[in-house]
Amino acid sequence: MVEWLKLVDKARSRSIWMLMYCTGCGAMELPPAMTSRFDMERFGIMPMATPRQADVILVTGYVTKKTLKRIIYAYEQMPAPKWVVSHGSCPINGGVYWDSHATVNRLDLFLPVDLYVAGCMPRAEANMKMFTELMDMIAKGEARGWEEYVKNRDYYKENQRKLFGYDLVFTDGRSAL
């Protein structure tokens, strides 16, 4: 009943809760954005401790294979309208670590990315621009990444299986008591 109100998209855009997970080196420019100089909280953006409470997961910089598994797990624990923002060039084509055997060169094969931010470690101003950009997209209802993940889930799961070599299923049926 609440769903169709235009108000809801406006509310969602004005109160984005970011998962407090510094996955890569870009996380060094998030604290200045959070604290007194750039202060993202004036847009209603707050870092939250657990994926259950978060709306957006920031993949800040390069993604190692080990971290990607945890990002996917956190992403799947987040409630429905959720978005992924990737910082810098490393999640696009590997960036400066293009030839490293430990990093994954392209993120959007495994997770639907809604917004890319330029900069090999985007500056604090770039982060603020990213937040305002994300707010506009949500307000207009364009950020549909999570529906993407639901619709062609087997495409993403297939990619993940090819990358890790085994099915990335985080909860087998045994614990459904």
Binding site: C25, T64, K66, T67, Y97, A102, T103
Partner: peptide
């Protein structure tokens, strides 16, 4: 458990 930031 290290290794989440290992880029070799």
């Amino acid at each position: 458990v290290p290794g989440y930031l290992h880029r070799a």
